[in-house]
Design a protein around this nucleic acid. Structure first.
Length: 773
RNA sequence: GGGCGAUUAGCUCAGUUGGUAGAGCAACUCUUUUACACAGAGAAGGUCACAGGUUCGAGUCCUGUAUCGCCCACCA
């Protein structure tokens, strides 16, 4: 038999598919289906044949940060899925009883405004034209469609997630969790209803939280003037139109210029409005700024409201919910805020009261979702108090004893580990530097306004009943109260209220489920650093309050996905890279790896199509390495029968069992590979996936392929049978090892190869992570 | 105004208790040799932002400066 014939025969022994380049498109959906059928995504259906592994293993859980049902997934989601799937697959291979729980977020205000915009564009109607019921029906349809798209995308990424436990922040079970949480916190005195200055978005017609504000720097003018000729003090403001609502002028207590006026009151006719101004002394005033005197508008500025409260000064609202001046606003009554400002300035000029106009930069508060300029208004809303003391019955949080008094702020402070300030904290944030940001935020935290005047979301579980004497009965509960005349609160809850419960609402709380016992606290929360405050802090708050526990042990924060040049991806720049597009062009494995390598936790990642392409080539490289190794292993010309490759570890490393002696070269190769496994296993534990991905890439391509395979060719073609067998043994071992080690990163191509070389007798996702020998 | 981060090869980034600088991509030269041209071989490329300091020795520790980026903040 000549060489050519041998070659043909060899090829006949290898699956035909290895003769062509690796084709992700043909492979991925088939493999994903196989995984799903295996049941191994579900921690209850993991293999049970080995002690301490699979269903007998230690639990390891991650709850997916639920994507908003506002459309489709972007690269940031893809990165999140890639990182979490790596964690889960790694732990599953290590024998942990892994749960990765999927879900979606109704994202109240975001989803509602998206649908509102769509309806307005298509039908020219607003939500009030449709009515609450019809509008909600529309939103639900949209949410369902988004949900289906999202689920499909999650699967395409190769996420080994337990679909049997899928949750939605607005489904029946989560509604029960939300209402139970509300009721408990109300009973603890942590949720209260109060009339306070809130951030009102006139465009969205709702309150928003401090975190939903985006500040925009704008040029503005600082006007210095007097209310009237008889008034002794000049004040400065950027918003003259609000001055019709002034009720005081505040000066610093030590300011000798104004000391003599403190306590005096003045009746003034200011632009047609009747003002009653009292001069008060307050530490909050900076004597060096402007005139050193502040016109206090308690109804339209929270700092002014604070001053007013300290000095018992009344509050007069002059701007309404549509950002229009109210009837008591003198000559500007009925006008919009902006023109009212001009009119007031003109009035000041005409009356020779304006002393100075200066250019200044001002941070304008705008609503994140609608872009509307936020108007601070006094409104009756529901709040969560972060400073109220309450008794925490059962506490696992270090520094807070069961049954002791604490506050939500304290819970948030004590739960998180900080090398400097709180070394005993149980929650570790990765990268560490973010704990500074976290603590800084907590220290400045104010009460959280949780009611929203929108329709889509959890309706506040409070019912009112009018009784005589203009008072009303109030009922807070999980179910509607029995009896006539109860009316439920019209408002809905801030979407982060339900997200805050996510780690335990998804596991069945308030029921005492087996899942809750097994999988809570979850091991890792992996999410973007941009929602550290929105979400992570609130989960810690809610879990501490309701379970007396932490929601997760480790917080792994990833950054933003930017384009190849480091620019933020946006529609207007046209630089958006769509994950589905990348998957269909280069495969999920390549897409995943390109999002991992080159970026540490907490850093923004740069992604270009070329990078993805490069990793597609890598998939093919592995494919070709497999072809080569199988061809030499299975060739008759080497005198080898097809070896049951699954048992190689034993054969290689136990000389008693093996008939094959490894040579010094094989042992050197083996040591190198072993060192690599030791290194990357350590780095996996340290969440340094970017290093592991890169090192495996480098080893496979530039060590195994370029050096070891090349160096092996003369031996494999030589006459020394024993040397050939030893080499083939090593190569097969190396192949299996890198398939295992790469599997969390490139699940599809590794599983596809594994299926072939093991003739479908085992599934790589539950194989053992390579051992350090 | 406060805080955080970055600054290392043309580009994107590693560099874990201080011990003579690394990877990927791009560019260059050569090679179509039966695993792979979605490839291989080879060569090239850096005063580690700047200035001081500690040390036998600093990309790494300290102080300061500059530039860029991000977050937080109710100076009216």
């Amino acid at each position: 038999m000549n060489e050519k014939d041998v070659s043909k025969q060899v090829h006949a022994l290898i699956s035909e598919k290895f003769l062509k380049p690796y084709n992700p498109a043909e492979t991925e959906s088939r493999i994903y289906e196989m995984w799903e059928k295996s049941g191994y995504f579900n921690p209850d259906k993991l293999p049970s044949d080995k002690p301490g592994r699979g269903v007998h293993g230690e639990p390891f859980s991650i709850v997916l940060p639920p994507p908003n049902v506002t459309g489709t997934l972007h690269m940031g989601h893809a990165a999140m899925l890639a990182i979490e799937d790596i964690m889960i697959r790694y732990k599953r291979m290590q024998g942990f009883r892994t749960l990765w729980l999927p879900g979606t977020d109704h994202a109240a205000i975001a989803t509602q405004s998206k649908v509102e915009k769509e309806i307005e564009k298509k039908e020219g109607k607003r939500r009030h034209d449709l009515g609450r019921e019809e509008f909600l029906k529309r939103v639900s349809i949209f949410a369902q469609e988004s949900h289906d798209t999202i689920i499909d995308q999650v699967r395409k990424m190769g996420a080994s997630i337990d679909w049997s436990r899928e949750a939605f922040t607005l489904d029946e079970l989560r509604t029960k969790s939300v209402r139970t949480a509300f009721k408990k916190m109300y009973e603890l005195g942590l949720i209260y209803r109060g009339n306070r200055i809130v951030n009102w978005d006139p465009k969205g017609q709702t309150t928003i939280s401090d975190d939903e504000i985006v500040y925009e720097e704008r040029k503005s003018k600082l006007y210095t003037f007097k209310y009237s000729k008889d008034f002794p003090i000049s004040i400065a403001t950027t918003r003259p139109e609000t001055k019709v609502g002034d009720t005081a002028v505040a000066v610093h207590p030590e300011d000798i210029r104004y000391k003599k006026f403190v306590g005096k009151t003045y009746e003034i006719n200011f632009a047609g409005a009747k003002l009653n101004i009292i001069i008060v002394a307050d530490e909050a005033v900076d004597p060096a700024f402007g005139t050193g005197a502040v016109g206090v508008t308690p109804a339209h500025s929270s700092i002014d409201a604070d001053i007013a409260r300290r000095h018992n000064v009344q509050s007069v609202q002059v701007i309404d919910e549509f950002a229009k001046m109210m009837p008591n606003a003198g000559i500007v009554a009925g006008m919009k805020v902006a023109p009212a400002r001009d009119v007031i300035v003109k009035w000041l000029e005409e009356n020779s009261l304006l002393e100075k106009t200066e250019d200044t930069l001002q941070n304008i508060a705008t609503a994140e979702r609608t872009g509307g300029v936020v108007e601070p208004l006094p409104k009756l809303q529901w709040f969560i108090s972060v400073d109220s003391k309450f008794k925490l019955e059962h506490s696992k949080i270090p520094g807070i004893k069961s049954g002791s008094e604490t506050t939500l702020k304290e819970i948030m402070q004590k739960a998180v580990k900080s090398a400097d300030s709180n070394p005993d904290g149980l929650i570790e944030i990765i990268p560490e530097r973010f704990d500074k940001t976290y603590f800084h935020w907590i220290n400045n935290l104010r009460d959280w306004c949780i009611s929203r005047q929108i329709w889509y979301g959890h309706r506040i579980p409070v019912w009112y009943k009018e009784v005589k004497n203009e008072s009303q009965d109030i009922y807070v509960g999980v179910e509607a109260p029995i009896g006539e005349g109860w009316k439920q609160d019209e408002d809905t809850l801030d979407t982060w209220f339900s997200s805050g419960l996510w780690t335990f609402s998804t596991l069945g709380w308030p029921e005492k489920t087996e899942d809750l016992k097994l999988f809570h606290p979850t091991n890792v929360l992996e999410t973007g650093y941009d929602i550290l405050f929105f979400w992570v802090a609130r989960m810690i708050l809610m879990t501490g309050c309701l379970l007396g526990d932490i929601p997760f042990k480790t917080v792994y924060l990833h950054g933003l996905v930017r384009d190849g040049k480091g620019k933020k991806m946006s529609k207007s720049l046209g630089n958006i890279i769509d994950p589905l597009d990348m998957i269909s062009k280069y495969g999920a494995d390549a897409t995943r790896l390109s999002l991992i390598v080159g970026t540490g936790p907490g850093n923004d990642m740069k992604l270009s199509e070329d990078k993805v392409k490069g990793y597609k080539n890598f998939g093919n490289k592995i494919w070709n390495i497999t072809r080569f190794i199988l061809s030499v292993a299975e060739g008759e010309r080497y005198g080898l029968t097809v070896v049951p490759r699954i048992d190689f570890d034993a054969q290689i490393f136990n000389d008693q069992v093996s008939m094959i002696k490894l040579g010094t070269t094989e042992r050197a190769y083996l040591k190198q590979l072993n060192d690599l496994i030791a290194e990357i296993t350590k780095e996996m534990e340290e969440y340094k996936f970017y290093l592991v991905g890169e090192k495996l890439y480098h080893y496979v391509w530039h060590e195994l392929a370029d050096k070891i395979l090349e160096e092996s060719k003369p031996i494999l073609n030589g006459d020394d049978m024993e040397a050939r067998i030893a080499r083939v043994q090593f190569l097969l071992y190396a192949l299996q090892t890198i398939l295992k080690a790469l599997h969390p990163f490139m699940p599809y191509v590794t599983e596809e190869i594994w299926q072939d070389i093991n003739s479908g007798r085992s599934v790589l996702i539950v194989e053992e992570w390579p051992k350090v020998l």
